[in-house]
Design a protein around this nucleic acid. Structure first.
Lengths: 141, 141
DNA sequence: TGACAAAAGTTAGACATCTAACTATAATAT
DNA sequence: ATATTATAGTTAGATGTCTAACTTTTGTCA
């Protein structure tokens, strides 16, 4: 199915995901997927978060988020604890090893953004974001 | 930062994939993924194709393509045969049931394209394609 | 011609992801 | 106060995807 813009976005998305995996592996995190990165990203930004918040931020289901956090916990990058205010809620926190990755993640993230924006420049990038935003908002309704 | 082009393309890609799955299910093809659609699309366009050609067109590995064709064969939408000229090569052909889906696929494909282009118009669509093309070409090198 | 490399395809094992069903806890309503 | 409903999270099973190893067949070259 050659859907023009749809097909182009799909290809770009897949290439960036693949690039991120390679980059994370090079940073000493083999087997870490971009979605794991999304989980960590929220923890870097706002500190401790619930499974629910992480799922919403990463655009993944609760079930998937459980598995993602399982893996990060097994790697000793995050830790789970039961909330004091609500026994249903789990609070996820970065470990020391997790905190230590913040700079690596920012470096990789910046590198990806500049790779994507390089061929179209600043104005092209802004125009691209405008168009994509309109498309996304439209699809979400 | 949170709304950069990479993230937007990822979201749009995931939403369109999900939409396609629903649409294919509604067309009497539950469990058929967009990647199966890509396989069928090449068969609609150029007729019989090898596994190698299908993999390249769908941007999937040989292993994945084997599984995709397995499923389509189990659904009696395509058929495999060994090439007369090269015993290593398998030739994949549409069955009668597979051929019958062509119109449904074109309808769904057109619907998706118009959904995506609707909020940005013809000129916006062309500009979007230009920008995406530059980004993709750049990433592929 | 005969050994070895290349190519087409499949199989095995792993993983991220989803939906559906489940447990446990909290909130609501009668 | 108790029963019902809602919410947070996990588990189970299925699926599309990948890499790596394998089989079979074809091509190459000394």
């Amino acid at each position: 199915m050659k859907h023009d813009a749809v097909m182009l976005m799909g290809r770009i998305h897949e290439l960036t995901q693949k690039w991120l995996r390679r980059e994370l592996a090079s940073a000493g995190l083999p087997g870490v997927a971009p979605s794991h990165g999304d989980v960590l990203a929220l923890l870097f930004m706002k500190g401790e978060s619930t499974m629910h918040e992480l799922a919403a931020f990463a655009h993944r289901t609760k079930a998937t988020t459980t598995v993602l956090v399982d893996k990060l916990e097994a790697m000793d990058l995050v830790r789970r604890a039961t909330s004091v205010y609500d026994a249903r809620t789990k609070v996820v926190v970065l470990t020391e090893r997790g905190e230590a990755l913040k700079e690596d993640f920012e470096r990789i993230s910046n590198k990806l953004v500049s790779m994507v924006y390089a061929p179209i420049g600043k104005t092209g990038g802004e125009r691209l974001e405008q168009l994509l935003n309109k498309v996304l908002v439209s699809l979400e309704n």
